[in-house]
Design a protein around this nucleic acid. Structure first.
Ligand SMILES: NC(=O)c1ccc[n+]([C@@H]2O[C@H](COP(=O)([O-])OP(=O)(O)OC[C@H]3O[C@@H](n4cnc5c(N)ncnc54)[C@H](O)[C@@H]3O)[C@@H](O)[C@H]2O)c1
Ligand SMILES: NC(=O)c1ccc[n+]([C@@H]2O[C@H](COP(=O)([O-])OP(=O)(O)OC[C@H]3O[C@@H](n4cnc5c(N)ncnc54)[C@H](O)[C@@H]3O)[C@@H](O)[C@H]2O)c1
Lengths: 211, 211
DNA sequence: CCATATTTGTGCATTTATACACAAGAGGCG
DNA sequence: CGCCTCTTGTGTATAAATGCACAAATATGG
């Protein structure tokens, strides 16, 4: 892997930069300096320049960065010059909100297949149009549709099993919303979204602030 | 602040430990060793012991940790020996899913007030019972109910304004679901939950894996 | 065409985080 | 009671991430 030495924190920040560049681009702003970008992203300006330096020289000294060009480059680096195909497992409260979310497709992520086990849900159509498949058909559908990323929004107790099914189907990347640590083999990419962890951080900060 | 030198990564991990300890506790497991805990949380065992060592000695050499005791201590450290009062701003797809989520209250977080600006929603009751207040009443209601944590689930374009309103009302901690970096004064605690950042990390990993 | 004002790209120091490896302590067993 | 086994707690090494500070490069204006 050519770029294997890039800090993961850098990738996360690139994603944040791209989000702000996107909005600048829409506002018609042509050029941005690392100082301004840094301030808006809450990051040190030298950090931004260093993050970009891992991948090339995208700026002009004395000027700054061309917004559109930088955005294009960052998206290329992150692998967003294509649409990624996702499967959603668990069409409950959270899963439905994810499906309704318009930003994903705008940013290059599409739910091409959705799954549940609830007989009351399977075979129905969700508002965004997809038919809910039963988990039993996961492997078949995943392969047919070319799913690349699995999104787990099942109850926590079912999440590990869901992950195993995804892995068995050849999926190499998982976004996990269940509040457990998934056990996966080497080579899998797993990202967790755990709201409670964030809340716990806030609670700790508030507690410390007082004594 | 007495504990101000604790790494933020430690706090995040404590939260993860507590999640697993909770499930162990429910299964009736009495004792756990750092090795096992480490494996389940995907963390180095020495790291766990060091994390705990910041706050005291909770284990017994040659034995391990008493699950209930350790869980209690971690919760105390994080400030979870009380129920935190939250306000939710924006009762859309995501906000509704958050309200429907049962785990929050179980883990010590309660939505005591909810807000929106949509006339079709204001003054109605959400399924979990709260009446939707108008944003105009934010300050008044926040003070009345003693809100400590603000949760922002408004459209991105309204998130910064929502944050300012929370700050003006005396709220010191914000959980932000909008995909923007909030600009807040010193002393505020802000945590962002940005799904797309996580997806971008996955996309990058998948892209690298191939070339 | 030179002087000046900017802002990038980067070497280096510093801080922060992670991991190894082992001494110290606790329990069990003969 | 002494020996053996186990697991913690931690000193120390290593690695990763951050941030300062400045030289290099570009634009502008007289
Ligand atoms: N709702 C939230 O705001 C929220 C917040 C944080 C975390 N989470 C986590 O997200 C997950 C989903 O939460 P939710 O509120 O949507 O729960 P939910 O109960 O509303 O939905 C879960 C869905 O998963 C389906 N399901 C059950 N077993 C399944 C299986 N084996 N395979 C596929 N689907 C299965 C259920 O039929 C249901 O439709 C949970 O793990 C929860 O802890 C949710
Ligand atoms: N739905 C998802 O899965 C998802 C995923 C990632 C991020 N997000 C982010 O979460 C936020 C909410 O997403 P959503 O899907 O629920 O959107 P939504 O459009 O369904 O809901 C937004 C709600 O906010 C209300 N609102 C608008 N202006 C407001 C204001 N000034 N103050 C208070 N409330 C206001 C609207 O009336 C609406 O009820 C967005 O920022 C979105 O980018 C959502």
């Amino acid at each position: 892997m050519k770029f294997s030495k890039i800090p993961t924190a850098t990738i996360t920040r690139l994603s944040i930069y791209s989000r702000y560049l996107e909005s600048l681009s829409q506002e018609g702003v042509k050029i941005i300096a690392s100082d301004k970008l840094a301030q808006k992203c809450g990051i040190n300006p030298a950090q931004i320049r260093k993050d970009l330096a891992y991948f090339g020289e995208f700026g002009i000294r004395g000027v700054g960065y061309f917004v559109k060009e930088l955005l294009f480059e960052i998206k290329r680096i992150l692998g967003l010059n294509k649409t990624w195909k996702m499967a959603l497992l668990g069409i409950g409260n959270l899963g439905s909100a994810l499906l309704a979310h318009q930003n994903f497709i705008r940013q290059g992520y599409e739910f091409v297949a959705v799954f549940d086990v609830d007989p009351a849900k399977v075979a129905r159509r969700v508002p965004s149009g997809q038919i809910i498949h039963h988990m039993d058909d996961l492997e078949k559908v995943v392969r047919e549709k070319g799913v690349e990323i699995g999104v787990i929004a099942t109850p926590a107790a079912k999440a590990q099993m869901a992950a195993l099914r995804l892995i068995a189907s050849g999926v190499k990347a998982i976004l996990n919303f269940a509040p457990i640590q998934l056990q996966v083999p080497e080579g899998m990419a797993v990202e967790n979204v755990d709201f409670t962890v964030k809340l716990d951080n806030l609670a700790y900060n508030l507690t410390m602030g007082e004594g």
